Each structure stands twice: as structure tokens, then as C-alpha cells.
Simulated scan of single mutants.
Amino acid sequence: MATTQHNNSVSDERSAKFSMSKLRRSPLTILVHLSVLLIVILWTLPTAGLFISSFRDKDQLALSGWWTSLTASEQNLVARTEGPDKQKQEGDVYVLSGKLLVDGKPADVKAFGFSSREPTQYEPGEKAKMKEGTTLTVTETGEYRMASTEPFTGKRGKRVFYTAVVPPKFGLDNYKEVLTAEGIGRSFINSLTVTIPATVIPILIAAYAAYALSWMKMPGRNLLIAMVVGLLVVPLQMSLIPLLRLYNDIGAFFGVGAKTYLGIWLAHTGFGLPLAIYLLRNYISSLPREIIESAKVDGATDFEVFMRIVLPLSFPALASFGIFQFLWVWNDLLVATVFLGTGEEHMVLTARLREMLGSRGGNWEILTASAFVSIAVPLMVFFTLQRYLVRGLLSGSVK
């Protein structure tokens, strides 16, 4: 009985200590949670804004930010009155009358004018004096009246400039414009033609190299590992032009053209190999030594050990690097422009979207919609392989 009471008191004491330690850690835990939440919001807001903007009307997108997308906005619009054939004579005055509409509905007019230089010169209800004794009046509900002592002539009506409150408009017009653009399908296929081999080739080469640097005894192995790590810090821009010149010289010697897919495959392979070898070696070297040694005792060669044991066990690391390499190559513009040029035959998707956007970058609706069109395939790849991402990156960090 005394022993039971003693155990209960010890358990209660431990529970109290655990509760006190939990209370002491709670402010730090809350701070960590708030920090993570803040980081998530900071990373999510730009993407959410880009996504909302991709569905907005291009005129509203040019005038206001995405955070105002759910509220009505004031826009400067222009319309034409009824034609001269619809004029009516009221005593000694000829009148053109009608109603200004916004998306088929009566406009909520805030100001109007008859000149593009001063489109908001008059307030609703005022009488604007135009040339040759003509007057123009526009009400708040969009009803206009243009009166003149002389008959109206011409084939079209007169222009009326006005500022109206326009409700928010959303639609798929931006995506239709991007997806139906000339050459977009060919560029999509070109990007796949570049990305898939440029992802598979470095993985195959790096897997063999990583196994050799992990489990095969060779002179200078540590030096090779140090060289691989050193290559991680070489900037792509520094080596791009020398690599292109080397490829052109070799291609000219063997009669291979410069603007071919082979060149860009080799370029992306060279730029991706250091990181691939580094990640895969960390993973393969962390595999249990007993498995490798048992297979060799049973008479397996290094190739058999690699193909039957190491490669299946290394799939998380292969998938994690595959995600990174696919994203880099798919979103690449610089290497594709240098090695493939801007010809219609080999233009990749990023180059095509850049051409659609124009040199001055004023078509925001094209930019927002094309951004989500271009990330559709990488998102599919990421969500397919994302469960292996963390496992592959953290492999080898602990024993």
C-alpha cells in the first residue's frame, strides 16, 4: 500500500513537472507557430494575387490591384451617341438622345466630357457647351442629350467620354487568349522535348557516379568529391558562353548543327550533375553497409549491387532531384535562348510567353494567365513526387 502511494506521488510529481515545463515552453511555441504562419502568408499572398488577377478583366487589371478585385471601380470609358439618322427635331433644335450602358446595364456616371483631353470636365447634370452652339448633358444614370441648332451630319454618332462605376468582372478571356495563341501548342511540345531528357540524363549519370563515390574504392575519391562540391558554386552565367563556344566547335568538327536539342540536353546535364551527384551520394552512402557487403559475399558484382539493391532503395533521392531538375529546366529561358535561339521551330514555352507579353511588358493579363499556364505541368510533377522530396533531401543527415 505504501509502495502504491509512493508510485502515485512520483507520477503526480512528474506530471506536475511536465505541465510546468509545457507552460514554460508555450510562449516560444506560440512564437514559432506565428512565425511559420507569417512565412506561409508572405509566400502565399503573391501567388494568390497572381491567380486572382489572371481571371480579372484586362481594363480593370490595368487600373487597380488584385486586392480591390471584389469591389466596384471607376473607369474612364468612351461611347458614341446615336447616329444622325436617329436625330429628332424639337422646335428649332435637333436632338440626339439615348443611354450610356456598361455591360448592357445603365451606367453610374461620375463625370463626363466631349474631349479626350478633358474626359472628366463636367459633373452629371451640367450642360457642356460644345462647338457651333451644340450642348451635351449627361445624367447620373447615363441618359444623355445632345442638342444643336443645326442638323447633325455624318455616318456615325458623336463621341462621349465619361467616368462610370464598373462592377468587378471575371472570366476566362485571358486564358483563352494565351491558350489559343499561334504556336503555343508547338512551344509546349518543345518544352517537353527539352525537359524530359534533360531530367532523365543527369539522373542516370549521377546515380552511377554517386554509387562509385560511395562504395567503390579508387584513388583520389575524396578529391573527386571535393571537386563535385566545388562545382556547386560555379554560376551558370559564367560558364554558359564558354560552353556554347565549345559545343559549337565540337559540332562543327562532327558536322552537327548548333541549334539542336542535343546541345541544350548536354548543357542542362552539365549544370545539373554536381547537385545530383551530391544529393545521391549522401543518400547512397547512408545505406546499411551490411546489405552491400552481403550481396558481394554472395558473388554479386558492383553493377548487380547497383541495379538490384541500391537503385530501388534510392528512389526517394532520385525523385527529389527529379523534381528540382524538372522545375529548373521547364522554367528556364536563358539556356534555351542561348542554345536553341528564338526560331519558331525550337521555341520553348517560356520564350513563347515572353514573345506574347511584348518588349514593354504592358499586357498584364497575358502575364498573369501565362504564369499559371506555365506552372501547370510542374505542379503535376511536384504533387506526384512530393512525398519523396523531404525523405530524399534529409537522407544521410542522421545515422
Rank of each mutant, 00 (worst) to 15 (best):
G91L: 00
A62E: 15
N76K: 04
K88Q: 04
R56H: 07
S97N: 11
A79C: 06
W66N: 07
Q89F: 06
E74C: 00
A48Q: 01
F55M: 03
K99Q: 15
Q75S: 07
E82I: 10
E82Q: 09
W43P: 02
S97C: 01
G65N: 03
Q89E: 13
I52F: 06
G49D: 06
L70F: 12
Y94K: 02
G49E: 10
W66Q: 01
A48L: 11
I52P: 06
S54C: 03
V95P: 07
K99P: 04
A72P: 13
W66M: 00
Y94Q: 05
T71S: 12
G91C: 00
S64C: 11
T81C: 10
G49A: 10
Q89Y: 06
D92N: 12
S69R: 04
I52S: 04
T81K: 06
T71G: 00
A79D: 14
Y94F: 14
S69H: 03
R56S: 01
V78H: 12
L77A: 07
D57T: 12
Q87G: 01
L50S: 09
S54L: 11
A72C: 10
R56L: 04
P84Y: 08
P84S: 09
T81L: 07
T71A: 03
E74Y: 09
S69F: 05
L63N: 01
L42Y: 14
T44H: 04
I52L: 12
G65F: 01
T47L: 15
S69Q: 04
P46E: 09
D85C: 00
E90N: 10
V78D: 07
A72K: 15
K88L: 02
N76P: 04
T44S: 15
E90G: 01
R80M: 11
P84W: 03
L70D: 06
W67K: 03
G91D: 00
F55L: 03
D92E: 07
V95W: 02
A72Q: 15
L45D: 09
E82V: 15
S53C: 01
A62P: 02
T44D: 11
L45N: 02
A48I: 09
E82W: 05
D92M: 02
E90Q: 13
L100W: 14
